[in-house]
Amino acid sequence: MTSQTITAATAGTWQLGDLTVNRIGFGAMRLPQQGAALRADAVPSDRERSIAVLRRAVELGVNHIDTAAFYFSPLRSANELINRALAPYADDLVITTKVGPTRAPTGEWGTHARTPAELRGQVEENLRQLGRDHLDVVNLRIVGSDSIAERFGALAELREAGLIRHLGLSNVGVGHLAEALAIAPVVCVQNPYGIGAPAAQEEMLRLCGERGIAFVPFYAIAGAGREGGASGTDSEEVLAVARAHGVSAAQVRLAWTLSRGPHVLAIPGTGNPDHLLDNVAAGGLRLTEDELARLAAPHAS
């Protein structure tokens, strides 16, 4: 596949409610800084380069961008970069954001928003930063196993008020999904997932597929590296498949993730134009049944 034919549409599409998105999207977490993401001492990224990456992503057919108001470094905010690069927004561009975590302007993490007023404040901050009058999708991101009914109910009220179009969940368990569905429709679940994922995440992937809910893995490439990015210590199984196709290990990990179901979306993030091209190209990589089985084995992670 040449760079002229690489497009995010190659991986197919899925519906987030009434919004159609290509299954290869873009995660904005890494845009505001160099190196590891979400650190108080992060080095700001090159602003023009980050803006160029966003515009190139859209040129390549990406129409699903994942962001959050707490994605920032000194001098840089992911939402501000998106606003600067892409506004006025194309009609088919879907921007998904998340609320819950709080960060001080200095970058230190605080407690999660829990009250309706706190969550509304975070929704309004995303609206302001993105320059929107409504948010396409808002995910409630949580930590822990306690009830989310009050928090999700508060977001459902903002949906009814027209500030939010669709609702999703992030970093949740099966019980949370059931709790949320009793309150309002859920269009997506964002959870950590990739090669070697634990059984609990496989179960969530299956449940989402049965209910027509998008399953949107994060850290599909980074794995245990999380905010720090891929560790570069891929298994021999991943490396062997990569060699067989003449692609990178990261592309194999993305292709495997997308193979897990038509409802699985990918949101790989990068501030590197070359990595962006590779990530989008992974949507066209087709692995054999034997390769998929080898990569699903416990020792392949």
Rank of each mutant, 00 (worst) to 15 (best):
V241C: 04
Q15K: 15
L239P: 00
V53N: 00
V53C: 05
E210A: 13
A156R: 05
Y71R: 08
Y219I: 05
A250S: 15
A224D: 10
S147H: 11
D41H: 13
T20Q: 13
Q129W: 07
P116R: 11
G107I: 08
V186R: 00
A40E: 13
A197W: 02
P44H: 11
A184N: 11
P298E: 05
A296E: 07
L81K: 01
S73G: 14
D66T: 08
E202W: 15
T96Q: 14
A117Y: 05
E108F: 10
A11N: 03
P105F: 09
I148T: 06
G261F: 05
Q122R: 11
N79L: 11
V138H: 02
S259G: 14
A222M: 08
E289S: 13
N272M: 06
T2Q: 13
G196S: 08
V43K: 09
L239Y: 04
T270L: 05
A293F: 03
G194F: 07
V123P: 04
A281P: 02
I142D: 01
L177W: 04
A244M: 07
E157A: 13
E202D: 13
R211K: 14
V137D: 00
R206N: 11
D290T: 14
H64S: 06
I221P: 00
N79W: 06
G225P: 00
Q251R: 09
D133V: 12
L292Y: 09
L75T: 15
V264E: 00
S45I: 04
L167D: 03
A104E: 15
L60I: 08
I82R: 01
A68E: 08
A161M: 06
D46W: 11
